[in-house]
Design a protein around this nucleic acid. Sequence first.
DNA 1: AATTAAAAGTACCAAAACGGTACTGTATAG
DNA 2: CTATACAGTACCGTTTTGGTACTTTTAATT
Lengths: 171, 171
Amino acid sequence: MLRISKLTDYGTLILTHMAGHPGRVHSAAGLAEALGLGLPTVSKVLKTLGRHELVSSQRGAHGGYALARPPNRITVADVIDALEEQAFGLTECSSSSGVCAIESDCRIRENWMRINTVVRQALQAVNIADMVHPGHGAAFPAPHPTEHRMHGPARSAAACLPGARTDEQEI
Amino acid sequence: MLRISKLTDYGTLILTHMAGHPGRVHSAAGLAEALGLGLPTVSKVLKTLGRHELVSSQRGAHGGYALARPPNRITVADVIDALEEQAFGLTECSSSSGVCAIESDCRIRENWMRINTVVRQALQAVNIADMVHPGHGAAFPAPHPTEHRMHGPARSAAACLPGARTDEQEI
DNA sequence: AATTAAAAGTACCAAAACGGTACTGTATAG
DNA sequence: CTATACAGTACCGTTTTGGTACTTTTAATT
């Protein structure tokens, strides 16, 4: 569906919150409270982020989580890599055994690979520190400042669709 | 999961095949045969592509499908727009009512929107004609020519993951 | 006019992924 | 020793996705 999972969304939200309050540890419960998310969910996300060394954890009383590196060294691509279940890639190549490319011999594949690279670079260009200071976005390749129609108030971590098409819209 | 659906994958495959054999109409059955896909699946994809005016259809005997425009005017983003179920966007903003951004007030949203834009531009930069001639990729912003590890032979339309990470890999 | 080829539409079902929760274990501070 | 907080595992309900079947409509050929 070309969409990040909710857990990834939560991950960026949590990391951004932590980056906005540096120098202290955050309990999973505190983060859940502050962000309006369920505690088990937040725990799960933090655990995974810890496994990927994006946050460090301290167990026991007065324990909690802290960023494992400066926020400007944690990119959105890092968060996706940690929290998305499948590895990064717009298409799947493994699994399923049927041969397809009888004729075209899947020359398309290498094009997809290049597209993947471009998309990934876009995701690597943004880090958590950027997320804390929204107006400061210097790392964005091509802002394309038009069309900002978004519906509904702040809700998840989420972005509304930038050019949410009706049908046939060509941008 | 940050991945296009199989139907979208099939869509690019079908369109690319048609672009490689211009000037004639293609029956759904013929395409299914040539590409090793199920006929009902191919029909479904073509129907949707027709609804979005990427292909034109001719009913009746000796009917079939043809590209509705020159292949260099059909972008990958167009195909995604036609075949993905949800509208384009890396995160969802609508649906679900729980408030979250108690503290951070979802400043992250506008960053996601910019990321969306960049990703979309990458997808718009590639068209079906590019897919037919793979070595010809001039429209790709930043090739990033390293790491081409792919596993398994040609299978779907699919791309193998470009930098398929094990864990903790930072590109 | 009848027949046949081929797309269009609708509906449905099975499998997989996602999101969320519960339960149990382990470490640390006081 | 107890309370707090992270760690790991396992599970379940919901949603999405992929694929199939069946019926209808259109057009060409005989």
